[in-house]
Design a protein around this nucleic acid. Structure first.
Lengths: 243, 243
DNA sequence: AGACTTTTAAATGTCAGACAAATAAAATCT
DNA sequence: AGATTTTATTTGTCTGACATTTAAAAGTCT
């Protein structure tokens, strides 16, 4: 069932992989209880701490959950979209920050993905999502807003746009792309005028979405991408030549 | 720097989160060595096994790597696109298999994402990527191919298409969507005729890509999506009514 | 002096055994 | 029967020890 040769790598990693494989292959199904730590230790012929390290690895990936007490133990976790979101966001954020991804590259990816779901959003957006988007636009127009808060609202706006496609798989995939951009966006100082321009695009997008006009949404997204990249380029240049 | 109140949850989870936060916030930078397990145990006022469980959690997310020996220890890992890929694929695969995502939903997401990078691929595809795609098409035409191998080749084909966009962030985001579909696709039996049809679409896509004709690529992708969904629907119906 | 070998020290990997805490089921009592 | 106590099981944590790996330091020989 699950074996474990003592040849190459850490035992805890091997055990984790064995259990992971069992979950992926369907040998272990959702909510099924794993053997107790003592039993697993016996089964794999290792000590309990080693088994625990393996289980913690799986817990970190939300593959299992543990419960204490008499009927407790480790259970195969149903990976929720929520959990998957947050993992994706963490991974994407680190990936971008650790690999010196150029702003243009990330920006291009983000808008390409958003444009992918724009036609679907135009077809399926609910009144609720429109309201969320308008609320975020309103917030973005507040004068006292910090750059960080402005960016956060921007993320929320685009998140609503993506969710409008009513496809959880799409939403999950895009969450990382959009949210991971935020740290990069936060490096931009938004002047009153640039905020005004962005808000205008947001309004255009929302209006078009309300009218279910996919073409205009797409066009506005292209404009917004162009504008955002121009903005970042100006910031970069001003940094290089602080005249 | 990193504190740890003993109130609510597992200590190892808290410690992992504290270190994770330090990495994300940039307090710990790539390739920096963490304190030894003994020092961390001292610092957090816990035992060494508890620290180790925390470190294994981080290792499971590829946030750190460990090295044995005199100058060994735990080091902040540069999250590579490779690592991120495989994590994303694991997560996406489980997400789809555990949440009864409808084939249509996954398929829609996949093709929406692929269409997003089609224009970029048309602009930037290399001769190398074209060659890969033609090689996969050739493989798909081999008569003895199993359904699984056909699907795997299909994945490779689309992977090349996505990589053609020459945007690592896009590639990373899409890898999960495309690969996670494979188990679902594997449930389809591909008749000789359906294979022929799919190969025709693949050829059309590759030709258009070679000609840098984004519009035709997009059109062919839409056709392929429609065809794939029809195929899946037929299979589902045949299963329901096995006349 | 320089190159090779041996020793040593530091770190992770693993183990054994123990106790604490939580939790639900079983047993007991009113 | 219902409420309470006991008990057993399981995870969470600690202590201390040993094994293994690895690089640097020490030592040795030419």
């Amino acid at each position: 069932m699950k074996i474990d040769p003592q040849k190459p790598a850490d035992l805890s990693a091997q055990i984790a992989q064995a259990i992971r494989d069992a979950i992926i292959s369907g040998q272990l199904i959702v909510d099924e209880r794993l053997p107790s730590e003592a039993e697993l230790a016996e089964q794999f012929q290792v000590s309990r701490p080693t088994v625990r390290e393996a289980l913690k690895r799986l817990a970190a990936q939300s593959l299992i959950r543990t419960q204490r007490g008499a009927t407790g133990g480790a259970f195969v976790n149903r990976l929720s979209f929520e959990d998957a979101y947050s993992q994706q966001i963490t991974t994407s954020t680190l990936l971008l920050s650790m690999n010196a991804v150029r702003f243009d590259t990330a920006c291009e990816a983000r808008y390409a993905l958003e444009r992918a779901c724009a036609p679907l959003s135009a077809k399926r957006r609910t009144a609720d999502q429109l309201a969320t988007m308008r609320a975020e636009i309103f917030r973005q127009a507040q004068p006292g807003l910090t750059d960080e808060a402005f960016c956060a609202s921007d993320v929320a706006f685009h998140r609503a746009l993506v969710d409008g496609a009513d496809n959880p798989v799409l939403s999950y995939q895009l969450a990382g792309a959009v949210e991971a951009m935020q740290p990069l966006m936060n490096m931009i100082t938004f002047t009153a005028r640039s905020r005004e321009a962005i808000i205008a695009y947001h309004t255009k997008i929302t209006d078009a979405l309300e009218a279910r006009d996919a073409e205009t949404v797409d066009f506005a997204l292209v404009e917004l991408e162009t504008y955002t990249r121009q903005l970042a380029q100006d910031v970069a240049e001003r940094k290089r030549k602080p005249a």
